[in-house]
Amino acid sequence: MSTEQTTTGSDFSYELTRTLDAPVGRVWQAWTTPDQYARWAYAAPGSVEMDVRPGGAWKATMVTPDGGEAPLTGSFLEVAENRLLVVGMDVPGRPEPSRMTVKLDADGGRTRIALHQTCGTAEERAVSEQGSTMLLDSLTAFLAEGA
């Protein structure tokens, strides 16, 4: 596994990239199958619902490290199987959803994943980037288990 991190200061966006030791189809399934997603993405069991198609809705209840729960909702804005997910995440108090782009590139039996998000403030960026880093760490561990 390799990791790169880029934060751009002017527009509150960040991009995280990693090379994962799993084929692209396996990474896609982990990201788009509710039961698999719940196992690595800190979601409460049974809380994940996904309609993985453009315009399809998703929801999950995330469990925080202190045991709290945070319900999340949104929609899939773009979907290209095994290559691209653009996810809209509803943010209370904001008229437009936050957009997270997940790009997958096959590299032999490995996958290069690039996660990009633009946030509204520096504080939102810091929290989102920390959460995304935790997600990629957990995804890496999940894939290593071969589950």
Rank of each mutant, 00 (worst) to 15 (best):
V91G: 02
T133H: 12
V27P: 02
P23N: 11
V24L: 07
A41P: 09
H116R: 12
S10A: 14
G55M: 03
W40E: 02
E96F: 13
F76Q: 03
G120N: 10
F76I: 03
L135K: 09
T73L: 00
P95S: 14
A106H: 08
R110N: 08
Q29W: 05
T140M: 08
M1R: 11
G131I: 05
L20Y: 05
L20R: 02
T19S: 15
P65E: 09
A114N: 06
A144C: 02
F12Y: 15
A30N: 02
Q130C: 09
T118K: 12
R18S: 10
L84N: 05
E4F: 14
S47Q: 00
D51E: 06
T121P: 04
G108Y: 08
A41I: 10
E124Q: 13
T73F: 01
A57C: 08
A141D: 13
E145G: 15
F142E: 05
S98N: 12
V48F: 00
G131N: 07
S138C: 10
P97V: 03
T19Y: 12
T61D: 00
G88Y: 04
T17A: 13
L135A: 13
A38W: 03
K59P: 01
G108E: 03
W28Q: 05
V79D: 06
G46D: 03
Y37G: 01
V63F: 02
E49I: 00
V91K: 04
R110F: 06
P71M: 01
V86R: 07
T133D: 13
T7V: 15
L20Q: 03
F142M: 05
P92L: 06
R26P: 03
R99Q: 11
Y42N: 13
Q117W: 01
W58E: 00
D21L: 10
T101F: 05
M100D: 08
D35Q: 14
T73V: 04
Y37D: 00
T19Q: 14
G88L: 01
A70K: 13
T3A: 15
R53V: 10
P54V: 10
S75W: 04
P54Q: 06
M50Y: 04
T8D: 15
E124W: 08
G146M: 06
S98Q: 12
G46R: 01
S128Y: 10
G109K: 09
M62D: 04
Y14T: 07
D137H: 04
L84S: 02
T33E: 01
K103H: 15
M89A: 12
A60V: 00
L104V: 05
T101Q: 07
R26W: 09
V79H: 10
R99D: 03
A43M: 06
T19A: 14
E129G: 04
R112S: 10
L115H: 07
Y42L: 14
